[in-house]
Design a protein around this nucleic acid. Sequence first.
DNA 1: CCACCCCGCTAACTTTTGCAAGCACCCCGC
DNA 2: GCGGGGTGCTTGCAAAAGTTAGCGGGGTGG
Lengths: 148, 148
Amino acid sequence: MGALKVGELGEFLREQRRSAQLSLRQLADAAGVSNPYLSQIERGLRKPSAEILQQLAKALRISAETLYVQAGMLDARERQELEVPAAILMDPSISERQKQVLIQIYESFRKENAAAADPAPTGGPRNGPGGPDDPKAPDGPDDAAATA
Amino acid sequence: MGALKVGELGEFLREQRRSAQLSLRQLADAAGVSNPYLSQIERGLRKPSAEILQQLAKALRISAETLYVQAGMLDARERQELEVPAAILMDPSISERQKQVLIQIYESFRKENAAAADPAPTGGPRNGPGGPDDPKAPDGPDDAAATA
DNA sequence: CCACCCCGCTAACTTTTGCAAGCACCCCGC
DNA sequence: GCGGGGTGCTTGCAAAAGTTAGCGGGGTGG
């Protein structure tokens, strides 16, 4: 399960530290972690938590993203694939209700497409014991969508 | 030390799980973590490690980056310019026509809200949950050139 | 030579993560 | 009634993360 490449991450961190002319203790102090622990991270014998990683990134003035990519936690190309529902949910400019509407429509589109492409899905993983979610007409976006 | 906003992260995770129609056990199993642990994460009483976060993101099919942003580990502003329309346009699972529909609705929502809330558009920089962290302010020349 | 300050690392310890087992509740078939 | 499976939550416990104290080593100057 080691999705984390701790070794590479450690080397990368040490490189960055050296290149920033920082001693182990200096960086550890700046990042708010203990010196020996940073040492162990750099040598790959410890998997730093998300928080520590973030603090190290800050102290090193490198983007946290860079670190995550190096750690193998962020796929470089994954960054382009921000999922639509997640993006919608994070958007502060629309209401929760509106988010739900958008997501519903989005899901119904996907379902529609899947049905068109694969009419015979044997053993449907549909666990919904309830009814089929409204495929179209995702309840009333009328209020806003109509105004468009 | 809590640079992590565990509570928000938990809520977000729960939202995502529900929105994906998954039970706690299902997601836990898919992500390779234990059911009770996921429960605790969702209620904000545990800070998941970087690895766990990654596995959950994978199982939920959302970008790990989204999760990090939600956890307060990546600055949202830095990257939120990806925004909903961009995410929609990049999605390969729906047709171009469907994309247009979604974006239309999204835009109409925004227009409606803007009209209702703020007739005088004095520019609303979005920073809702943005925490006032950064105690010592090492100060980065954040040249976040908005590509919007 | 010796104190002094830095470097990185090892050792023992405390705190937290993360898990297997079990609880209480609800719904459905027998 | 009872059994079985579904949901989420609580409880100890092993295994990690992350800490403070201390080690050997290398300058530098007194």
